[in-house]
Amino acid sequence: MTSLIKNNKHIALIFFSMAVLFFAELKISAQDILLSQKNYADSLFDESKYFDAITEYKRLLFFDETNQFEFDANFKIGMSYKLGAKYSNSIKYLRLAQRAAEANEETFKSKIEIVKVNILRKTFSAGKLLLNQIEKDERFTDRTDEINYWRGWLRMLSDDWEGASESFAAIDSLHPLKTLSDNVVDEKYSVTFAKVISYILPGSGQFYSGKYLSGLMSLGWNIFAGYLTVNSFLEDRVFDGIIIGNLLWLRFYNGNIQNAEKFALEKNINISNKALRYLKNNYEGKKP
């Protein structure tokens, strides 16, 4: 009988150790399988196969019962959508990541990523609002440089180069992007100046932005229409004077001012775009 009990104990021991082994293995294997799934998704992401990467991150999320990959997977889904220029979806998943974030670092990372999506989507006011909110957050008081960096980017892409220069200067007075922003500011034409000189001498605004032919023709029309108008009044043909003055002279005078503004703006857009192209293709630092 004793031997039987002993034997039973023996059996129980075997079963116990089997169970332990089994569950341990189960736990380890489940962990491994999820991890290898994450690596698989990451590899798709690294190969720029964003659509498929999203599928695999979603699969990871679906089978991840303990939610250990909730932040990582949602964040990467958000990033994938961003790189496919599907911005609303991107923000949706980045918000999920933000909600799943446990460490402050993760919260910060997801919030900044949302700012970056807003920059690319050109919804600058939303980005600005979020940046201000991050800046006021006590958890992130030591991250001012990063906040300023992205504020600078937001301002560059929203064509506010003076503001951008200020933001980058707050990080470092010799920051390369500050220099770039300052250069753009210096290169730009003054729209107000172009308009003001055109009020005084028609065509001069166009000359200022290098459109000489257009400037000359504007001047020509204004002299011609002005002559006709003045002549009509001098010859007491008041009705003709009013008509010609309104329909001809005023029209070309206004057109001249509009053109001065348009050409200066056009030049400025080209200057901005040159800098933005450089940022896109040649700048080595962090980009949105």
């Binding site: 790189l83 892409l157 056009e266």
Partner: peptide, 13 residues
Amino acid sequence: WEAADISYELKSI
């Protein structure tokens, strides 16, 4: 869909 080429540039007139 595929990865998009995202432009920073402003819309020209």
